[in-house]
């Protein structure tokens, strides 16, 4: 494997919560433009791994490198500014704001950086960002809901909106924590289509997913996590055939 196009490298990461070894000796390499799925039973440490990547949690040891820059020790907003966006397992949105504003806010971060004192300009004059947000909402099929308050959206719509909030930043690396959980079959399919569409734009993605249908239709690579360890790693076909995986995961819970 050509090491040169590895864009994300999680190197020897350990994370302990008191006595719990939530991540043990994780070594993960994600290549540019690929979709890398992480699967594993509940409590395996998948979300924790994403938390370590985006700087929400500091690893007990080891480090995360993104495109030559060491992420460990940086603030979450700095990590985002390097081009990493994340959809959370439970939607993290601005519940009291409108859908449109929810999607506009990340665009401001992308355009204006971590802090700008733009308080005398009117929001109405930001037509560029508004249009961009409307396009984004159209892409995820939510334009007709743009004036709704985000809190009143259905669970599935909240996730889709959160996806739009990430996509509008055109991140180089998109982290998705169970993006289809809680969605109807129909919504799941729309989301998969959407994710395939972005795939063709060459965005690198790490996706955590329980739905094998989603995983095998999207992933270029799969890592299997169980009890904080990566127990298997490879292409979908390799992983599918791996007996260890079948025992720990596929056989166990499905």
């Amino acid at each position: 494997m050509a090491n040169s196009n590895v864009v994300l490298h999680v190197a020897d990461v350990h994370k302990r919560f008191g006595g719990l070894h939530a991540l043990a000796d994780i070594d993960l390499q994600v290549e540019e433009g690929q979709t890398h799925a992480i699967i594993g039973p509940n409590g395996a440490g998948k979300s924790t791994l994403l938390n370590v990547i985006i700087g929400k949690l500091a690893p007990t040891s080891g480090q995360v490198v993104f495109d030559g820059a060491i992420l460990t020790g940086r603030k979450p907003y700095q990590i985002n500014q390097l081009g990493i966006a994340r959809v959370f397992q439970t939607p993290e949105i601005f519940a009291d704001l409108s859908v449109l504003h929810n999607v506009m806010i990340p665009a401001f971060a992308k355009r204006d950086g971590t802090f700008t004192l733009n308080m005398l300009r009117s929001l109405d004059s930001e037509t560029g960002i508004r249009q961009e947000a409307e396009h984004m909402l159209e892409d995820v099929g939510m334009l007709n809901r743009k004036d709704m308050q985000a809190a009143s959206l259905s669970r599935g719509d909240k996730r889709r909106m959160e996806l739009a909030m990430c996509l509008i930043q055109h991140p180089r690396l998109l982290l998705l924590d169970e993006p289809t959980a809680g969605m109807s079959r129909h919504d799941t399919n729309t989301t998969i289509e959407l994710l395939k569409k972005i795939k063709s734009r060459g965005m690198t993605k790490v996706i955590i997913e329980h739905d094998m249908h989603v995983v095998f239709s999207l992933a270029d690579k799969i890592s299997v996590l169980a009890q904080g360890r990566i127990i298997a790693d490879g292409t979908p076909d390799e992983v599918r055939g791996n007996p260890k995986v079948q025992e720990a995961y596929l056989g166990g819970t499905h």
Binding site: I54, K56, K75, P76, Y77, N80, Q81, A85, R86, E92, I93, F94, A95, D96, L97, I105, P106, A109, K110, G113, T114, F115, M165, Q169
Partner: peptide
Amino acid sequence: KSNQTRMQFTGFNT
């Protein structure tokens, strides 16, 4: 006010 954590993961130094 709405979600400070989200702000930080969105790239803002709050």
